[in-house]
Write a protein that binds this DNA or RNA. Structure first.
Lengths: 288, 288
DNA sequence: GCCGAGTTGTAATAAATTATACCAAAATGA
DNA sequence: TCATTTTGGTATAATTTATTACAACTCGGC
């Protein structure tokens, strides 16, 4: 099995993601989400960041086709070197950066653009496709749920999916009642969890139960990966830091929209009539 | 001799350049010319690149104020991690544009970045400030509501505001019941409406009623402006087109988060204790 | 021309890192 | 349920790396 040496390392990782063991995949995701810095650390630092043991990191690197860890780092550095060739473009298009508010907006925009770039750079195509595959499969039921803030995204996703297909629900209400929803799900079905920093214990618990029941978990999370990542079949991670007291869900929403766009395209031929039917229902006059 | 820890390393080098010996200066220049990769190599690789001996490199690092070479590397990495944001990134590290999915993600990302830029460039600071002013004024009640999809953002906004202040609600449920909520609002209060393309007639109706009652309307809408714009006291518009069957709410969410960030900052001194109280309540065990 | 402060490289040493062998635990399938 | 395979961590060995001591060299001043 010879890998294409010309490919960038991040590409190599994304392509080889399928051949990795679960824990190795965790390492891969951490690296992609913190590319390339994580790989430039020592093995143990990297391992610690990914919450795995050092040998796992080494096995990961080895499976990528590198002869040794230093070899791997050399490759990363040489890639970084080429990338940095272009002069450090700092100057930015700016609106009124004179006013305090203008500056704030500028900084905020900067961070968001950044988060978007990093996020899309690190999303493995295979992972993205896998999620779209699942959402496009009408035989699989889909349940969505999220944390305190991210639940809005879970809701948004379920709205969109419900328009183009059946069998989609959003889990709301008291967390005590969540698990009841799982009763309806079987091995082929799918639980979509949104969980970002200040990870919700309630969600982790739900994920554990779902995992026990062999329900496939699709996880939308931040760059540091929610603990649920261990139980998840597929992970889509977004970058969330912004100059604010709170984390940003912009990049996460971007991922959701990309998935929705792709799924919609896939199901369009059949969704179209469904949409028309919905439209008709919507215009039926109601009392009030 | 303590150096300013806040300065970037490259800055630190430039400042200290005078105090270095000739050979050390050579090292400094090599590092600046191949920043930061050269410093991420091993001492001997770095030394070889600079055509000096290993101890010279170490003396250089030491004179910069670092306790050890690994320490120096850690600093470089952490700088890189933060800085990987703005520069360049796009071109080099971009994801597999070879695969169809890679192309799709690239196009999508491109559109979103574009929307963000256009949105932030066109937001009037005064309008932004005005909205923050309103949200920061605890005497004003705030009601949020949105359309089919944008309601998720309305919900998100209300969640955030409710954490830092009282008097915030989200209007849900049947549109027939919406107007009941307006009974609670007076002239000084505020109705926040999210309305993007395929503008909802229901919302326009609600806006008309609110306007009649002299309730101030804050409108989050798309670049073409919902018809509600005529009734609105303040408008924040975002760009929404993406290569998808649906419009994107990413830039709109970005605006919401910017407003929330600013409002939070404004109210923080008092919100902090409120947050602590909420946290306590949250941890009270519940049945189940 | 010799001396001494300052500078640089060589070589030996100490410290860390990476790599491996092995075992336990989990997953898988009959 | 049990046997078999896969997977992941621990402990340790092997290697590389950073560090230090010291000697050689350079350059000014006397």
């Amino acid at each position: 099995m010879t890998l294409d040496e010309s490919a960038t390392i991040s590409e190599r990782i994304r392509l080889g993601l399928g051949r990795l063991t679960p824990t190795e995949r965790k390492v891969a995701h951490i690296l992609l989400a913190n590319y390339p810095v994580a790989g430039l650390e020592t093995v143990s630092e990297f391992a610690c960041r990914a919450q795995v043991s050092a040998p796992t990191v080494l096995r990961f690197v080895s499976r990528l086709g590198f002869a040794s860890y230093p070899d791997f780092q050399r490759a990363l550095r040489s890639e970084l070197e080429q990338q940095v060739q272009s002069p450090l473009v700092k100057a930015r298009f700016s609106l009124e950066s004179t006013t305090p508010t203008g500056q704030l907006l500028n900084r905020f925009h900067q961070s968001l653009a950044d988060n978007l770039a990093k996020t899309f750079r690190s999303v493995p195509s295979a992972e993205f496709d896998a999620v779209v595959d699942i959402f496009s499969d009408r035989r699989r039921k889909v349940l969505t749920i999220g944390g305190r803030f991210s639940d809005a995204l879970a809701l948004y996703l379920s709205f969109h999916l419900r328009i183009i297909r059946s069998g989609v629900s959003h889990i709301g209400g008291q967390s005590a009642n969540w698990r009841d929803h799982l009763l309806d799900l079987g091995e082929r079905d799918c639980l979509v969890i949104f969980d970002i920093r200040r990870y919700a214990p309630d969600l982790a618990e739900l994920a554990a139960i779902a995992s026990d029941r062999r329900v496939g978990i699709v996880l939308f999370t931040d760059q540091w990966l929610s603990p649920i990542a261990q139980k998840a079949a597929h992970i889509l991670a977004a970058h969330v830091p912004v100059p604010s007291r709170w984390d940003s869900m912009v990049a996460l929403l971007a991922l959701v929209e990309a998935v929705v766009a792709s799924t919609t395209e896939r199901l369009w031929s059949t969704a179209e009539s469904r949409l028309a039917a919905l439209e008709t229902m919507r215009h039926v006059p109601r009392g009030g």
